[in-house]
Structure formats: structure tokens, C-alpha cells
């Protein structure tokens, strides 16, 4: 069941226009499971390298590992 949920979440993230999503955005991909369960699924996706974290310091978001990052792009410009 986790594998199915993982696929749904990754599919959902890929469909989004924005690169970074909040945890409860990810949960929208799997409305049939409880949030605590979704947390475990997301943890697995992180540890498998299929999702990565982005943090503003005060809040955290999730993104695909292929996505760039503002800071990285800025570094490239310097």
C-alpha cells in the first residue's frame, strides 16, 4: 500500500506548477490515508531520495530532487 501511495504522491508533485509543496499539499494526493500514515510514506520517499526538503528556516516544503533552487541559481549568476 505504501508503494501505491508513494507513486501517487510523486505523480501529484510532478503535475504541480510550483516546484515546492507543503506537507498538507502532498496529503491531497492520498486523501484515503491518515496524515500520520502519509508522514511515514513521505519519510520513505525522502530516504529513497525521491523527494527532498526545502526550508525557509521557519517553514519546510518538499520538492523533487531534479528541481533547482533559487539560491543555487543565484550562485550560478555570481
Amino acid at each position: 500500500m505504501n508503494e501505491e501511495a508513494k507513486d501517487k504522491i510523486i505523480e501529484y508533485v510532478k503535475q504541480q506548477k510550483k516546484s515546492k509543496l507543503y506537507f498538507n499539499d502532498l496529503c491531497k494526493a492520498v486523501p484515503e490515508i491518515k496524515m500520520m500514515q502519509a508522514k511515514k510514506v513521505v519519510n520513505e520517499l525522502i530516504s529513497e531520495g525521491k523527494l527532498k526538503y526545502w526550508s525557509s528556516g521557519s517553514t519546510t516544503m518538499y520538492m523533487l530532487p531534479s528541481e533547482g533552487d533559487v539560491a543555487k541559481e543565484e550562485e550560478g549568476m555570481n
Binding site: I46, Y53, S56, G57, D69, A71
Partner: peptide, 20 residues
């Protein structure tokens, strides 16, 4: 200082604040 939010240690979503 600028913010840079992608840095961290693998598997953790907190504990590191990116700064440039």
C-alpha cells in the same frame, strides 16, 4: 545575507539554515 533553503543533512528536514 541571503536565504538559501535547500541545504541540510540527508534525511533530515531541519537543523540547518542555509545562508549566503
Amino acid at each position: 545575507w541571503k536565504h538559501g533553503g535547500i541545504v541540510g543533512v540527508f534525511g533530515y528536514g531541519g537543523g540547518v539554515i542555509g545562508r549566503y
